[in-house]
Amino acid sequence: MPDPGSYILLGAVLFAIGMVGFLARRNLIVMFLSTEIMFQGVVLNVVAFSRLHGRLTGDAYGLFLLVIAAVEAGLALGLVVLLYRRKHTLDAESWSAMSG
């Protein structure tokens, strides 16, 4: 099993890439996919830490992270569908008119 250090580095890289996508892309769906990539980085990290400590707490956290991801996806998709019905676009910037 590779050293936890590699996993933590990999998790950091995935997190950074996901963050780039979340900040730079304008399509709502791609933004949410980017947050899911960040989740993947975090899951890899908690499992790596859990192996570092020789216990399974991190695995349990990983499962709870999956729950959070499922909740987030459900609500986010509901909102995206609502936005699409209103504006007929998936552009995140079309909401910026609300900020006035």
Partner: peptide, 30 residues
Amino acid sequence: TDTRAREPLMAILVSFVIAGAIAGKIEQID
């Protein structure tokens, strides 16, 4: 929406600075 990114340079800068902060400490984990 899909062919024009929003401030890609700043986004990349912010994200990779965060990743770099983790990388700076990576030796201690080892």
